[in-house]
Design a binder for these strands. Structure first.
Lengths: 132, 132
DNA sequence: ATGCACCTTGTAGCCACTACAAGGTCAAGC
DNA sequence: GCTTGACCTTGTAGTGGCTACAAGGTGCAT
């Protein structure tokens, strides 16, 4: 399978696949006579794994770790669990931070009555801090 | 006021202030005899403005726009409003995306019973797609 | 033979900083 | 007067995770 096909099947762009190879995340596949990368189903599965982990927001270092762990069948999955929990924690923190932003933005926008800049509550809010 | 003091007062690090100057976001202040940057209260106010906008998640291009608009007192603040609304929209999208991640991560973590990798529901989930 | 989609390599760019190196300046303390 | 240490200067390179582009080679249908 050439890179374009595996890209379509896994949802990982060809450029990104080459990037993963350069970075050592994906092992280099064999080449055809004309020097094209020739992928098998295993590589496609790995790429799907990577893409799902990335979609869930795992960092590339985390993905590397998950990939390594996924090959050690006999090992306890406690590490996987703890990695996932740590990541969930980060995601929750990020949500909380964004909710603070959202609430403040909403408040600012609601307070603006759309006259001139000199009356603009949004600009006011940005210019001054809240406390004394 | 030297860069360190204005950094403390505005919460923008000295390195970042120099970076903003290089990028043309902040105009270069006069220098002392010993070539140190010498800031006045206006620059501090601008930096506070930038920091608050950044804390609210506005991009640097947005911040530039907001800074320019904030100097045009007579203009309608409709543009400010629309910029803020567009950004709020982005923030809400980001929250929604992260909530999807969070829910899926929670589900995965809850389904794992912490035996070996070969039984691990988390690894399973990453390896296979959901649909048939 | 021609066109077009696909592939190859390498390099540079994105965002918003952040880190570091190598050196200059200034006030306080001895 | 000399040292110490905090502060400042410039410039360059690194972060993450790709993405875009240039310049050229390959494969297949018409």
């Amino acid at each position: 399978m050439r890179i374009g096909e595996v890209a379509r099947k896994t949802g990982v762009k060809a450029e990104t696949i080459r990037f993963y190879e350069r970075e050592g995340i994906l092992t280099a596949p064999p080449r055809t006579r004309s020097n094209y990368r020739d992928y098998g189903p295993d590589e496609a599965a790995t790429l799907t794994f990577i893409r799902r982990a990335r979609d869930l927001g795992f960092s590339m270092p985390d993905v590397r770790e998950l990939l390594e762990l996924s090959n050690e069948d006999d090992r306890s999955c406690a590490e996987v669990d703890s990695l996932a929990r740590a990541h969930l924690d980060q995601v929750e923190r990020k949500i909380a931070a964004l909710q603070v932003m959202r609430d403040e933005l909403s408040r600012m926008i609601a307070s603006c009555e759309q006259y001139t800049i000199s009356d603009c509550r949004i600009i006011d809010n940005l210019a001054a801090s809240h406390g004394p």
